[in-house]
């Protein structure tokens, strides 16, 4: 397919994330070799796969933390990082990319809370710095979000004073403060002690029930089975298997997924 044909893939109204033949290389190492993936609005899409398969890279492409080399990637019908003018693609300015990222929340494996700010200040950082809103105006909302993730009483604590599970829930609240229409999770529980995983998954489950569109890279097969609407298996830079989680996990289509599941289950 030529570039021009690719661009004829028209966004569908009920699709939040659409990836068509997405390629990404680091130097000569081709990490994504044509990813095709679709997430409908309101769905929870889970992604599993072996280490180094390109799961994080794909997630980072969705909010343009990485630039894609070929293919097409759109969120809510808008191309990410590029604009179509006439028949040509133009790179977006930093400002425009930043504006696009505001409607996409991201939660990282290692939380990445801002250590010099309290939990409440972390949650307010987006609205205050990016949207230039008044601190007093967003304080109530921050408190509300912290309560929602079960940390209503820890607003004044610094990240260092919180457990890993609490930090990750603050990170979720921080992303939600920007009122995103899409949430990306990159292995949100794999840096946590086993007994802390449950609290974070509970918050994510609640979020899914509230209708948030989510893409979740995870090793928690149980969560994928229970909460996921779709499940993608990314290995070697391609979506090697795809389907409703319960069916896919019970009857994997591909040998690779069979082998992977045999190892992790």
């Amino acid at each position: 397919m030529s570039r021009k044909d690719d661009l004829l893939v028209k966004p569908k109204p009920d699709v939040m994330v659409e990836a068509v033949e997405v390629h990404k290389s680091f130097g000569r190492n081709e990490v994504l070799k044509g990813i095709n993936f679709e997430v409908k609005t309101g769905e929870v899409a889970c992604i599993i796969g072996p280490s180094g398969g390109g799961k994080s890279t794909f997630l980072r492409c969705i909010n343009h933390l990485e630039k894609i080399d070929a293919g097409q990637l759109s969120v809510a019908g808008e191309l990410i990082g590029y604009k179509l003018k006439g028949e040509k693609l133009h790179e977006m300015k930093d400002k425009e990319v930043a504006a696009q990222r505001r409607s996409i929340g991201m939660v990282f494996q290692r939380f990445n809370l801002f250590p010099h700010m309290t939990a409440a200040e972390n949650v307010m950082a987006g609205p205050v710095v990016v949207q230039r809103r008044n601190k007093n105006e967003v304080r109530d909302r921050a408190q509300e979000l912290l309560t929602k993730v079960g940390l209503g009483d820890r607003g004044n604590a610094y990240p260092m004073q919180l457990s890993g599970g609490q930090q990750q829930r603050v990170a979720i609240a921080r992303a939600l403060a920007m009122d995103p229409e899409l949430m990306l999770f990159d292995e949100p529980t794999s840096a946590l002690d086993p007994e802390l995983v449950g609290d974070v998954l509970d918050v994510m489950r609640q979020l899914a029930q509230s209708g948030m569109t989510m893409v979740v890279v995870t090793h928690e097969i149980g969560f994928a089975r229970e909460v996921g609407d779709t499940l993608g298996f990314i290995a070697d830079g391609v979506v090697a298997d795809f389907g409703p989680p319960k069916e896919l996990l019970a009857n994997p289509n591909s040998e690779r997924l069979k082998a992977f599941l045999a190892k992790v289950l």
């Binding site: 400002k95 504006a99 505001r102 990445n112 990016v130």
Partner: peptide, 15 residues
Amino acid sequence: GQEEAATALGMSRLQ
């Protein structure tokens, strides 16, 4: 990761 988290929130390089 700090820069990454800030960028993901939509902050510019300067912010």
